[in-house]
């Protein structure tokens, strides 16, 4: 049979020699290896003090984007919810009223926009599906919570701060 990789090694089925049967040389060798590891660099990252960098393509918690004037970009078209394989996104659309032009960019907006972070698989399909560049995935991950309802993120959790008002 042809080997799949060139790393394959044939199993040595010869009977053990006396030195191998004595087991001591093998133990000594193993102890040498473990002793070397005592002084090797540790793999642990002391988490709260030190944080590992995320990769540039890391997909963390979602954010809802605003445009340059601080208006919400989302028009509640529902494409993200359709694209979502985990069915984590729900929304309710509403019509923009007179005098709300500074809040919402287009005539329709999401009155309610919820993402269930327990269902979400962070695949990033919502980000790809959004035609208005409203949903983005940030570089943070969901903090722990005591209850399930704490993982359902509403608009106030998702919207990025207003560029001028700071809220």
């Amino acid at each position: 049979m042809q080997a799949l990789t060139n790393r394959a090694k044939a199993v040595d089925r010869r009977p053990m020699t006396l030195a191998e049967k004595m087991y001591i040389p093998a133990i000594a060798k193993g102890m040498g290896i473990t002793f070397k590891h005592l002084f090797q660099k540790k793999a642990t990252v002391s988490f709260p003090e030190k944080k590992r960098d995320f990769s540039p393509v890391f997909r963390g918690l979602h954010v809802l984007n605003r445009d340059e004037e601080g208006r919400e970009r989302c028009t509640a078209c529902g494409l993200c919810a359709v694209a979502c394989p985990a069915e984590a996104i729900t929304m309710e659309a509403a019509e923009r009223k007179e005098g709300e032009e500074h809040l919402y960019r287009e005539e329709k907006y999401a009155a309610k926009y919820e993402i269930n972070m327990l269902r979400c698989i962070f695949c990033g399909f919502c980000e790809e599906a959004c035609p208005k560049d409203a949903v983005y995935m940030s570089e943070t991950f969901a903090p722990a919570n005591y209850q399930r309802k704490g993982f359902i993120y509403g608009k106030d959790d998702l919207l990025i701060p207003h560029p001028k008002e700071g809220k």
Partner: peptide, 13 residues
């Protein structure tokens, strides 16, 4: 501690 160091960890700290 010894267990951790041998396994390239830090151990209780």
């Amino acid at each position: 501690k010894v267990a951790a160091w041998i396994q390239d960890r830090l151990g209780p700290n």
